[in-house]
Amino acid sequence: MAIETLAPVQPTTEFPNADGPHPGDVIVTSNLWKTYVMGDQQVNALRGVNLRIKHGEYVAIMGPSGSGKSTLMNLIGCLDSPSKGSYWLNGHDVSKLNDDELARIRNKEIGFVFQTFNLLARATSLHNVELPLIYNGTPAAERTARARAVLESVNLGSRMMHKPNELSGGQRQRVAIARALVNSPSIILADEPTGNLDSKTSVEIMGLFDTLHAKGNTIVVVTHEPDIAEYAHRVITIRDGSVASDQPSSRITGQKLSH
């Protein structure tokens, strides 16, 4: 179930360009800041980030350690709230929601894929994929059927009763991707999805993201690796908490990006 789409926000004095989400937008940020207080110091991890990502886009957010890309990922993933600015996800302003409301949005609207897989060690692949459906109260028969279907879609139908220690790294990441897909989220948000995989398996997993994108999924990959970023169709580079560049990837332009 998608979030109800709200009417576009009117420009204000504080955010003169904050016209809010347009038809087809899934992620919109306006003057997004995140400030951490460390003793008597204030650290601005994000400094007025403006983004607009449409439904069906395949976007990489790239930057070195300390650039602010992980902070931006946490805000996009509704794992944290901004210090200032606005964030609309699927037409809904989520920047002012409380923790319980953010948890509900995360479950319904965002499919997470993590570098470390984050699978329950003693649970089967099927049960790991069912977890988001258990949390939102989906009846048992329906959640099992949906979990089986998405495991089949990532070519793990024969491994659904296996536990993580019985799977290869690539298979475990496929389970994580199936879990991300099971709620039919607005976006798939992948944080360094190949970070724990060898080169051959990384190519296989990025090929799976290509397949998912071709089926209409909106994919946002957060990475520090240029080669992984260029699997996407658009690369947003973050430096010192701001957007340093936003351009088509080399697979679209045919030219290697400079980072």
Rank of each mutant, 00 (worst) to 15 (best):
P64C: 07
P64R: 14
G66D: 12
K69N: 12
S70R: 06
S70Q: 06
M73C: 08
N74T: 03
I76Y: 03
I76H: 03
I76Q: 01
G77L: 13
C78S: 14
D80F: 02
D80V: 05
D80T: 06
D80M: 03
S81C: 05
S81W: 00
P82T: 11
S83N: 04
S86T: 09
S86Q: 13
Y87R: 01
Y87I: 15
L89D: 01
L89G: 11
H92K: 14
D93G: 03
V94K: 02
S95L: 11
S95V: 07
N98L: 06
D99A: 14
D99K: 12
D100T: 15
E101A: 14
E101F: 07
L102R: 15
L102G: 10
A103Q: 03
R104K: 15
R104Q: 13
I105G: 03
R106P: 12
N107M: 07
N107T: 00
N107A: 14
N107Y: 01
E109D: 08
E109I: 02
E109N: 09
I110M: 02
G111V: 11
F114E: 13
Q115K: 11
Q115T: 08
Q115S: 09
Q115F: 00
N118T: 02
A121M: 08
R122D: 13
A123D: 10
A123C: 09
A123P: 01
T124A: 08
T124R: 09
T124P: 03
S125L: 06
L126I: 04
L126F: 07
L126D: 08
H127T: 14
H127I: 15
H127F: 08
V129M: 12
